[in-house]
């Protein structure tokens, strides 16, 4: 299974949740498969999906899922100690670990070699770290949402991409509709 297969399986579970989605193909795939006001698509700034998700989770009560990639976590490794030491139980970091920089042509990452992101997350102090296979992603995500405990999921899968259009939506529109939806649900 590749990332787009995982996203397809996750959609029934996360479609109604607030999702911060990683730059490039992950956002483009999610946008094509299930565009929702609850999705925040990153159009720039590789590596910050987990940081944006953490900031969002810390200041309000709705569940926040940050969809990240192994390459992006490697880019912003400092995020894991920050997450570990600032626990937000409404936060789930879901790392698609396909061992490659998918959006730039599947160049291999160190996470696909000797480096274990789940072990790094644990060493950083993250308490609920689950490494799973692609086929288990939806069930693991369902349990993580239900647990109301901050959870880091490292989902191992194969590298590979499907053809997807770029996102042409204006960034301010993406951000504004996301904020309006969050505000409406938080008031309700």
């Amino acid at each position: 299974m590749i990332r787009s297969d995982i996203l397809k399986n996750l959609i029934p579970v996360i479609s109604n949740e607030f999702v911060v989605c990683n730059i490039g193909l992950p956002s483009q795939e999610l946008h094509m498969l299930d565009d929702q006001p609850t999705n925040f698509y990153m159009l720039g700034t590789m590596g910050l999906s987990s940081s944006i998700g953490l900031g969002l989770a810390l200041v309000q009560k709705q569940t926040v899922i940050a969809i990240d990639g192994d390459g992006s976590v490697l880019t912003n490794f400092g995020t894991l100690p920050t997450i570990a030491n600032n626990v937000a139980d409404n936060f789930i970091l879901f790392i698609v670990d396909n061992g490659s920089y998918g959006s730039t042509g599947d160049q291999p990452t160190y996470a696909g070699k000797k480096t274990s992101l789940s072990k790094v997350a644990e060493a950083c102090g993250c308490e609920n770290v689950i490494e799973c296979q692609a086929s288990e992603a939806a069930d693991v995500m369902k349990s993580a949402i239900a647990s109301r405990k901050m959870t880091i999921i490292v989902c191992k899968c194969e590298s590979g991409n499907i053809k997807v259009p770029v996102i042409t939506m204006d960034p301010v529109v993406i951000r504004d509709r996301f904020m309006r939806e969050l505000s409406a649900r938080s008031a309700g």
Binding site: G55, N76, T82
Partner: peptide, 23 residues
């Protein structure tokens, strides 16, 4: 709420999230 960052771009990501969360 004080949240030390390990790098400034990480901190800006956290601030972006906080803003979208209404703070």
């Amino acid at each position: 709420y004080h949240i030390p960052s390990n790098k400034e771009d990480e901190g800006m990501g956290i601030c972006a999230g906080a803003f979208m969360g209404g703070k």
